[in-house]
């Protein structure tokens, strides 16, 4: 009975309940968008965009503008720029991310050095802070989540076609640049509203881990599209809960929980393949 009370104790605090809700929602949202990030071979983009967001956040802090609005605008602009530069094919997407986002990150560092008062806010962007979550933050994540689900359902086949086979999609009447822009907008919005939970340094992992784990579990795009958000939600919720007892920052625990599940799935796939090969060798 005492154990049960202990296990439920964190739920008596509103800040924990809010943190748990936002961590779960953020995990699901990153899991959903992460499917496209992973399958388009742009896992690095989450990492890059989070750095771009750092520059925007620093600038917003210096100019005394709304902190996350500045970061979000900057991230969105960077995302669209990366998409545009990489489509030219003169330089690859990875190089475009490297140039645009590191320039933005450098600007953030310069502003931080010049205007030291911005440091406190910038720490929150880098490492996340679930203790100060407001209802408005939860609504923002939920809103972007609902928007993402509606857009992905509405454009399901076009997004799949443009991701799997952009050349043929283009000649079949799908506007590939438009689909890329839609995904960049959703990704930038996702980073903007989840940055408070995970922090920019760990957000790229939350974009990748649920999707790659789901990929190990299914060969179907449709199944991956619901499996990845479910895994992301579990990583977020369980990680947040464990962080209460382990007294470790929630972002780190969420990522570690996801990594453990990924390792388990990877090992299980390896065992299954080895046993299939062993079965073949007996025939």
């Amino acid at each position: 009975m005492i154990v049960a009370v202990d296990l439920l104790k964190p739920f008596s605090y509103e800040f924990f309940r809010n943190g748990l809700i936002i961590a779960t929602l953020a995990g699901a949202l990153c899991g959903l968008i992460g499917v496209f990030v992973v399958l388009r071979g742009m896992s690095y983009i989450g990492h890059g965009l989070s750095h771009a967001v750092f520059g925007g956040a620093a600038l917003a802090a210096v100019l005394n503008l709304n902190y996350f609005l500045g970061a979000g605008f900057w991230g969105l602009a960077s995302g669209l720029m990366i998409g545009r530069v990489s489509r030219k094919r003169i330089i690859g997407a990875d190089a475009a991310i490297g140039v645009i986002t590191t320039a933005s990150f450098a600007m953030g560092l310069a502003l931080q050095a010049r205007f030291g008062q911005a440091k406190r806010s910038i720490d929150a962007v880098l490492f996340g802070n679930v203790l100060g979550v407001f209802t408005s933050d939860i609504l923002a994540v939920a809103g972007v989540g609902v928007l993402s689900v509606v857009v992905i359902i509405g454009l399901y086949r076009k997004l799949l076609f443009a991701t799997f086979d952009p050349e043929v999609a283009g000649v079949s009447g799908v506007s590939v640049p438009a689909m890329e822009a839609v995904l960049m907008v959703l990704l930038s919005a996702t980073i903007l509203v989840t940055v408070r939970v995970i922090g920019v340094l760990l957000i790229s992992a939350l974009l990748v881990l649920p999707a790659v784990t789901a990929r190990l579990m299914t060969n179907s795009f449709g199944r991956m599209l619901w499996l990845s958000p479910v895994l992301g939600a579990i990583f977020g919720g369980v990680g947040m809960y464990i962080s209460w007892y382990a007294d470790i920052p929630s972002g780190a625990v969420i990522i570690l929980a996801g990594t453990l599940v990924f390792i388990a799935a990877y090992s299980a796939v390896g065992v299954r393949r080895r046993s299939q090969l062993a079965g073949l060798s007996h025939h």
């Binding site: 399958l39 086949r157 799949l160 076609f161 799997f164 086979d165 999609a169 990929r215 299914t218 060969n219 179907s220 795009f221 449709g222 199944r223 991956m224």
Partner: peptide, 10 residues
């Protein structure tokens, strides 16, 4: 990750 049905349906 795409099945035969998904390729044809897209």
């Amino acid at each position: 990750p795409v099945t035969v049905g998904e390729v044809i349906g897209m």
